[in-house]
Computed example of a mutant assay.
Amino acid sequence: MKFLALSTSVHRYTNSGIHTGMWLGEFTHFYDVLTEAGHEVTLASVDGGAVPIDPVSLKTPVIQLGGTNKRYEDPEFMDKLEDTPAIADVNLDEYDGIYLIGGHGTLFDFPSEAVSRAVAHFADAGKIVSAVCHGPAGLLDVTLADGTKLLDGRHVTGYSWAEEKLARRTEEVPFSLEEKLRDQAGEYTTAKIPMTKHVVVDGTLITGQNPTSAAGVGEAVLELAV
């Protein structure tokens, strides 16, 4: 099966100008789980071109476990991030599911017409829609073909405000993802301890709370990829 992984194209916070971008481990962990099981994963981004990497994602020890550094040091793998197609230019019919990679940059460009249209395409076709950490920002305000909202009555998770405080990014982000998900979804849950694995499966909608949940999202996707 073929899966489309989507990254942010935003590389700096608006307020401070500090670098942000895609959280690399959230791509590598999902990628490894899927490809080791024999599936394809293609990377795209909101605007196309080179994908920005949040430098903090290369320094966090818990994320380095599981191969993030190994992948970062692999030129062939990193070439995948150098020239990605824009989501608006991707033939979505070629893929069996979509995975929204996290990173703070997603809060700025995932709530967009192009991303919403892509997510709705997969949801309307009954295909897998998955997201991790800040990636569920791309699930917000998505309207389906029947006029309902994607998150209506659904069970989800995503990066919590407590985790935002731990990351010291409360002054940088444009909104609280937790608050938005609580407002729009049927139920929003988190792990009892911040920054520990928490994955929620609701039909073909799969969400993970934080970077430590990326491999779990991949494993949940595999359960449906039959």
Results as ranks from 00 to 15, higher is better:
residue 174 P to Q: 02
residue 162 A to Y: 09
residue 166 L to D: 12
residue 171 E to C: 01
residue 135 G to I: 15
residue 129 V to K: 01
residue 157 T to K: 10
residue 125 A to H: 14
residue 106 T to H: 01
residue 146 D to E: 07
residue 113 E to N: 02
residue 162 A to Q: 15
residue 151 L to F: 08
residue 130 S to P: 05
residue 126 G to K: 04
residue 156 V to Q: 02
residue 129 V to T: 05
residue 118 A to D: 02
residue 162 A to P: 01
residue 148 T to D: 10
residue 127 K to C: 09
residue 145 A to W: 03
residue 114 A to R: 05
residue 138 G to F: 14
residue 167 A to D: 14
residue 122 F to G: 00
residue 145 A to L: 06
residue 170 T to R: 00
residue 151 L to T: 10
residue 178 E to Q: 11
residue 128 I to C: 05
residue 130 S to V: 15
residue 175 F to I: 02
residue 146 D to F: 12
residue 138 G to T: 15
residue 164 E to V: 15
residue 179 E to P: 00
residue 159 Y to M: 08
residue 135 G to M: 14
residue 160 S to Q: 04
residue 128 I to G: 00
residue 158 G to P: 03
residue 113 E to S: 06
residue 159 Y to W: 12
residue 108 F to L: 14
residue 174 P to S: 05
residue 137 A to C: 04
residue 176 S to Q: 12
residue 172 E to N: 04
residue 179 E to Q: 05
residue 159 Y to G: 00
residue 165 K to P: 02
residue 146 D to T: 12
residue 176 S to A: 10
residue 139 L to H: 05
residue 119 V to W: 10
residue 173 V to H: 03
residue 148 T to E: 13
residue 174 P to I: 14
residue 136 P to T: 04
residue 120 A to P: 07
residue 158 G to M: 11
residue 171 E to P: 00
residue 110 F to P: 00
residue 125 A to S: 10
residue 138 G to R: 04
residue 119 V to F: 07
residue 127 K to I: 15
residue 158 G to C: 11
residue 127 K to E: 10
residue 159 Y to V: 14
residue 139 L to Y: 07
residue 129 V to H: 01
residue 153 G to T: 08
residue 133 C to N: 09
residue 142 V to S: 03
residue 143 T to E: 11
residue 145 A to Y: 04
residue 128 I to E: 07
residue 135 G to N: 11
residue 170 T to C: 01
residue 140 L to G: 02
residue 167 A to H: 11
residue 119 V to P: 03
residue 133 C to A: 09
residue 110 F to R: 03
